[in-house]
Amino acid sequence: MRKYIVIYRSVLMENLQYAASVAMGFVSYFIIIYIFLKLWNSMYAEPGSLIAGYGREQMIWYVMITEMIWFGARSGAVTRQATADIRGGNIAYQMNKPYHYALYILARYTGEWSVRLPMYFVLAVAMGLVMVGPLSGFGPFAALAAVVSILLGITINGVFKLCISLFSFWIEDTNPFQWLYDKLILVIGTIFPLEIFPRAMQPFLKLTPIYTVCYGPAKLTVDFTPEKFLEILGAQLLYLAVGLGAMFLVYGKGVKKLYVNGG
């Protein structure tokens, strides 16, 4: 475990040097939130109205939290680096090192979001307070539950994105699959709480990463109940276990197919 902590720390220190570059991404976050603020404002034409049980403030805070996760978890390690290592043959050097390649990438991923996420968190809170005001009913228990859920959600997201990148052992370009996964999270997960979807679709959506990566953390922030926390925590732990199992399986099968042309 110590070696992964060393990798994590080195990536963390490296990324701290580029904190200013991360801050430049705030413009994109601001634009997206501005668009959704305007969109939801036009949806909530009458003051005090509810959509799927959510008030206007809750809905906008929901989007802010999910977008914070989305922007905070952006990583080159689980996508570009893993794909380039496999396609370029660099993995042949790395698989001989005294660490597991997939866990090495996850340690790098954690180092990356450890810098980005707190920065986006500060921005999201500041924008939320200015644009919609404080969230009613948000207390210390909700904050604690939301933090645990956000950290688990981001880790699950990294594991699944890495699983997709590991398919580079078989296919040349995994970008299209990353797009589809991103769209699933971005289009359905970040904008709408599950309750907005038709009742028949909700059980199906609970089985997708949307539930554990976006919905869970945002729901606990805007509408915390202890029962919901236990339900979401259970689902996240189960999802993480399945994701890690799939990751080791895909990697194990993939490296057996590896051939290097020298160089």
């Binding site: 036009s42 296919i171 589809l180 289009v187 359905i188 907005i196």
Partner: peptide, 29 residues
């Protein structure tokens, strides 16, 4: 050819995903 076709088809799917977003929004209003 495979990369070309997957890139083209998946970009179409990628764009089509947003139809869901708008269907839901127009169901509400």
């Amino acid at each position: 050819k495979v990369t070309f076709l997957t890139n083209t088809c998946f970009m179409m799917l990628n764009n089509a995903a947003f139809i869901i977003q708008w269907l839901i929004l127009f169901r509400l209003k």
